[in-house]
């Protein structure tokens, strides 16, 4: 039980994928313009990340290791992720055309999202079990969703605030992301074992 809590806590806060490991920065900046878009993206990433880590664990354990094909890890994992992304893309197109339009290119780009591939590869690296890898994938996705939604909220506020011309747009966005990252790094040392 403690282990589960620790994995979740670590993935969500302490080792946050976006702000501590700096993975998945591209959708983090690209889809955080509006809260609605960010929420949609978060759910898409959550779906893909959790299933990708589960599937990749299964493939790793039951196909790659027995056949001695560990060198095909990357291509297998990308295949899994691509299939999942295709699936969620169709689903979003059907259920919410506006979200589909808003996510635009960032939805298919989840395929090459380093956070998603990263979680699959890290699972293998860290020799997780089936349950812990699923948890780790889910936790990482929740962490991603957390910072993405927080950040989009901040950006919505910044949109309506008077900002010096020098900082308008991307500079302020990047500075804010940096400051959020600093804040999240404060979580290291949160748990003493």
């Amino acid at each position: 039980m403690t282990e589960i809590a620790l994995i979740l806590l670590s993935a969500v806060l302490v080792n946050n994928f976006v702000l501590t490991k700096f993975l998945g920065i591209c959708p983090f900046l690209g889809t955080s313009g509006k809260v609605e878009t960010a929420v949609g993206m978060s759910f898409a990433v959550m779906f893909v990340m959790t299933l990708a880590s589960v599937c990749s664990w299964l493939v790793q354990q039951f196909i790659l290791v027995p056949l001695g094909l560990e060198y095909l890890q990357t291509i297998f994992f990308i295949l899994i992720i691509a299939a999942l992304v295709q699936f969620i893309e169709m689903m979003i197109h059907k259920t919410s055309p506006v979200l589909y339009q808003a996510l635009g290119i960032f939805l298919p780009l989840i395929t090459t999202n380093c956070a998603v591939l990263g979680v699959a590869l890290l699972n293998v690296q860290q020799e997780q079990t089936f349950v812990t890898s699923a948890l780790y994938g889910f936790g990482a996705a929740v962490g991603f969703a957390l910072v993405l939604i927080l950040f989009s909220g901040l950006r919505e506020r910044m949109e309506v605030s008077p900002v010096p011309a020098l900082f308008k747009g991307s500079p302020l966005t990047l500075i804010t992301a940096g400051m959020m990252s600093l804040a999240f790094m404060g979580f290291s040392g949160l748990v003493k074992i």
């Binding site: 299939a83 169709m90 689903m91």
Partner: peptide, 26 residues
Amino acid sequence: YALLSLGGFALLAGVVLAIAQQVFHV
């Protein structure tokens, strides 16, 4: 083995996606 497993896996994913395409047809 490498070709077979990769090809088989890709085929499986393709079939699943083809079904999904029918379900989520817009």
